[in-house]
Write a protein that binds this DNA or RNA. Structure first.
Lengths: 348, 348
DNA sequence: CTCCGTTGAACAACCGTTTGCGCACCCTTC
DNA sequence: GAAGGGTGCGCAAACGGTTGTTCAACGGAG
């Protein structure tokens, strides 16, 4: 299981600056300058420059990024850690981040932790080992030791999706409050009065934010609502807590899930408890994951623009890398309600 | 748009081997040996070793992977290029590959090309720039220049999902033939006789393999079938070619799509042409992408174990890296039919 | 007491780039 | 014709590790 497997080197080693220099009959430093476009300073003869470029082309020279990085301290690599790569919502975020990063010449190292802090630790360590210049961290939890280590080492970090109340860390978050309020108001306007909330893991910020907004919105309508917590944002957990909630509160006519996958589990639970969605109980999700419109029933949900969230986070990270002294900032990705067929008025 | 944004260095630079050596009062080479567990050679006093480890711990030393890589030629990084990160099918593959790679101490750099060869070129170049030790290449096409360059430079590569008939390159592919045959036989046994195929892009291997198997299976039943090609594996294209096929061949009662996303588009096309799936026309997909069971109707499809395919490819790549002389090999990931509700007997 | 074999650790070269500095050379200018 | 100032490029020292080689010290044997 170790990487020591007697690795041979590649048959024919790639050409180096030295090879190009020899080919062009100049010193390696000159080649370096030309290939870094420092010829602009009028320091190199057009003739020499052309000779060097031609030699580089002929040899198929490609800059050794890690050697350069060793010297310059810049790797142009950023790491991104997400809880689950098989979650389409996060794929959208990745895409948004990638587009920004690539445009600026950066590469992305992606790691999926399965929401396991131990995985997170080793992945982050590997990323730092390759001298990633900054991290997009999407798995923050309360008392997150890995994150604490990062700020301790003053590694540029931006949190996304989830935050913690560590000062000095930037974050890009969904507008949980507005989104949740919209969802609850929708249910209210449909006539629902017995609404429950199935939340995510207790120690992640979006869970507490959404729960808070859920209760606040209900309260301002003179109502209260019950809730449960899932251990992870997966269908099975949505199923488990919904079944429990339904058992306990049979008069429930609507469930607001903290995320689409939980909502999917809720729909299963509703079916398995002998009821129909949306006829007997409505459900609304959160995120608007891809294909949500194709589920049965098509899911009413709160849309967060995944692409925008990802690109906002990437931009923020890039700025933080360029200027580490920059004050931390938290940005909100807008939320909007998209009404489909998993919600309906309660049966009278 | 350039990365030159005046990047400052991190406030406090991470400790180096030199720092640890000073702290422990020994030479850096000794530290290096200890931290690489070469102490086993009985060359270092347990006392010294302990002192060094303690110093490293106290300073929070973490090996600078790129500096090591520069010297050793090993980066423990492999690149993976996929057509579309927002495709769940590929997310599953990534997961399988990641698990194998991480277990062996490797990191994964992921790039999504949107099926654009130009993107592929720059992404691959960046990966090689950071001295990735090998590549998992999932975007192969006929006359793929990027791929040609890779084998030319004898970079360890394994293709997945798609292959080309370049000798010397390993690949892990879905069992297109069996999968397609199973799907067609299913349709046949249901009583369908007018079956069309909506294929993927013409220059990718899975397209030609699936089309070939489609025609062969039909032929052995004494039938023939028409087909069309999508430009990309996306819903819109599935929609486009299905509509055209339906227009041309109104008696069609079943469509076999080369991929689930195309199948989704086909279902839309069927609806929009005033027919119902599966009552009027059945559709079967390929891949069994996640959530396929939740679509409406739940999709009958050919299941490929994405996780297995990814891990097979990763294992193959690791072996190729360890032994570049290794003969190329192509492995098949098993296919099985999963019958759901998008297929039914044709109306009589 | 001398000599030699071990053992434990230091020395130094090297991996491929970048970059501050120095040094010829040539062209002006008095 | 010599001084002075550019120009165009080479020199060499880093960056943070790894590793073959050397070297000092120590203990034991003769």
């Amino acid at each position: 299981m170790s990487a020591s497997g007697g690795g041979e080197t590649r048959a024919t080693k790639p050409p180096t600056l030295r090879d190009v220099a020899r080919e062009a009959g100049v010193h390696v430093s000159t080649v370096s300058r030309v290939l870094n476009d420092q010829a602009a300073a009028g320091r190199i003869t057009p003739d020499t420059e052309e000779r060097i470029r031609e030699a580089a082309r002929r040899l198929g020279y490609r800059r050794n990024t890690i050697a350069r990085a060793l010297r310059t301290g810049r790797t142009l690599v950023v790491g991104m850690v997400i809880p689950d790569i098989a979650n389409l919502y996060q794929a959208g975020i990745t895409r948004g981040a990638g587009d920004i990063l690539y445009a600026d010449g950066f590469s992305l190292i992606l790691a999926s932790t399965d929401d396991d802090p131990e995985h997170a630790r080793t992945q982050v360590s590997a990323m730092l080992g390759v001298q990633a210049e900054g991290l997009m961290y999407g798995v923050a939890r309360e008392d997150d030791e890995v994150l604490a280590g990062l700020v301790e080492e003053s590694v540029p970090v931006v949190l996304f999706n989830r935050t913690v109340d560590t000062p000095g860390v930037s974050a890009v978050l969904p507008d949980d409050h507005t989104g949740t309020r919209l969802a609850v108001e929708h249910l209210l306007s449909l006539g629902h009065r017995n609404i429950v909330h199935v939340g995510g893991p207790e120690d992640v910020s979006s869970t507490v934010n959404r729960l808070g907004a859920f209760e606040a919105t209900l309260k301002s309508a003179g109502l209260t609502g019950s809730h449960g917590f899932a251990h992870r944002h997966i269908e099975e957990e949505g199923y488990r807590v919904t079944r429990a909630l339904l058992e306990e509160l049979p008069e429930t006519t609507a469930v607001l899930a903290a995320n689409d996958r939980l909502a999917l589990g809720a729909i299963d639970a509703i079916r398995d408890s002998g009821r129909i969605c949306p006829d007997d109980v409505s459900v609304v999700g959160f995120n608007d994951m891809p294909y949500g419109n194709r589920f049965s029933p098509p899911l009413t949900t709160v849309r967060i623009s995944q692409y925008d969230l990802g690109s906002m986070a990437a931009r923020l990270l890039l700025e933080t890398i360029a200027d580490p002294g920059r004050p931390a900032e938290t940005q909100l990705a807008p939320a909007e309600l998209v009404i489909r067929d998993s919600t309906a008025p309660p049966q009278t």
